[in-house]
C-alpha cells in the first residue's frame, strides 16, 4: 500500500474521483452529472495512459501497472457501445469495475520505468497485449451484465435482455482473447522458437478460453432453460481472468516465460 505523489499518480486518483462522482450522481439520479463525470473520468484515464507512454518512451503495456491503466481507459467507449447496441445502461457497473481496476494501479503496483528488454521489442507486442486488455474488460463486463440471471424470481423480460446483452458482450471478448492467444502464439514462435511453450500463463489463458467455449456450447444446447448455469460459466471465466492477472502473474508457483510484470 503506497500513495503516488507524481503526476502519474495524480491522474490516476483524479480518474478514481470522477468514477466515484459518477456513482454518487447516479445515486442522486442526476443524469447530466452522470454523463459528465463518466466522460471526464475517461479523459483523465486516457491522459494517464498517454502520459505513461510519453514518460517511459514505449507503448504502456509492459507490466501490470501499465496493463491496468489501459484497461481503465477502455471502459467508457465499451460502455457507450453497450448502451448503443443493447440499449442497457451499464455506467454504474462499469464505474465500479473501473475503481476495482484502478485501485491496484493507484495503491499497489510501483510505477518505476523499465526499458524494454530485447524479447519485448516486437511489432506483435502492442496487438497481443491490447487485445487481451480489451478482451478481459469485455469478459468482466459480460459477467456483471449476467448478474440479474442469478437472481431468484427475475422477471422474464429482464432475464432475456440480460442474457442477450451478456452474450453479445462475451462473444466480442471471446473474439479478442482468441486474437490475443493466436498473436501470442505467433510471437512465441518468432521470439522463443515454439508456438506453444506449456508456460503456466499460457495454460491458464487456454483454460479461460475453454470455459467460454464451454459457455457457447451450453447456450446452444440448453437455450434459455438454464440461465443460472450460463451465468455461473461467465463468473468462473471472470474468476480465471482475475486469477491470471493477479495470482499467476505474481506467485512464484507459476514462474515461467511470461514473467515481465
Amino acid at each position: 500500500m503506497m500513495i503516488k505523489t507524481t503526476l502519474q499518480g495524480g491522474l490516476i486518483y483524479l480518474t478514481m474521483v470522477f468514477f466515484i462522482a459518477t456513482l454518487v450522481a447516479s445515486a442522486l439520479r442526476q443524469r447530466m452529472l452522470i454523463k459528465g463525470f463518466w466522460a471526464a473520468g475517461f479523459l483523465t484515464a486516457v491522459s494517464a495512459v498517454l502520459w505513461r507512454g510519453i514518460h517511459t518512451g514505449h507503448p504502456p503495456m509492459q507490466n501490470l501497472f501499465e496493463f491496468f491503466l489501459c484497461m481503465a481507459a477502455f471502459l467508457w467507449p465499451l460502455s457507450r457501445l453497450s448502451s448503443w447496441k443493447n440499449g442497457i445502461d451499464t455506467t454504474v457497473k462499469d464505474a465500479v469495475l473501473g475503481l476495482c481496476i484502478l485501485f491496484p494501479a493507484g495503491f499497489v503496483f510501483g510505477e518505476e520505468v523499465r526499458r524494454l528488454p530485447p524479447a519485448l521489442q516486437s511489432s506483435l507486442f502492442v496487438p497481443h497485449v491490447a487485445s487481451y486488455v480489451a478482451g478481459y474488460i469485455m469478459l468482466a463486463r459480460a459477467a456483471l451484465m449476467a448478474l440479474p440471471m442469478l437472481k431468484k424470481g427475475c422477471p422474464p423480460a429482464e432475464m432475456r435482455s440480460a442474457e442477450a446483452a451478456s452474450r453479445q458482450t462475451v462473444v466480442v471478448g471471446f473474439l479478442l482473447i482468441t486474437i490475443g492467444l493466436v498473436l501470442g502464439s505467433l510471437w512465441g514462435k518468432i521470439c522463443w522458437g515454439h508456438y506453444w511453450q506449456w508456460d503456466p500463463k499460457e495454460m491458464w489463458s487456454l483454460a479461460t478460453w475453454m470455459v467460454y467455449a464451454g459457455y457457447f456450447h451450453l447456450r446452444l444446447k440448453t437455450g434459455m432453460r438454464q440461465p443460472r448455469l450460463l451465468a455461473v460459466f461467465l463468473w468462473i471465466g471472470l474468476l480465471f481472468v482475475v486469477l491470471t492477472l493477479t495470482w499467476i502473474n505474481l506467485s512464484h508457483l507459476f514462474s515461467g516465460m511470461h514473467n515481465y510484470a
Partner: peptide
Amino acid sequence: CILSAASIALAFVGA
C-alpha cells in the same frame, strides 16, 4: 470443462 481443468493441472506442474 475437462480440457480447462487439465490446462490448470498442467499450469501447476510447470512448463
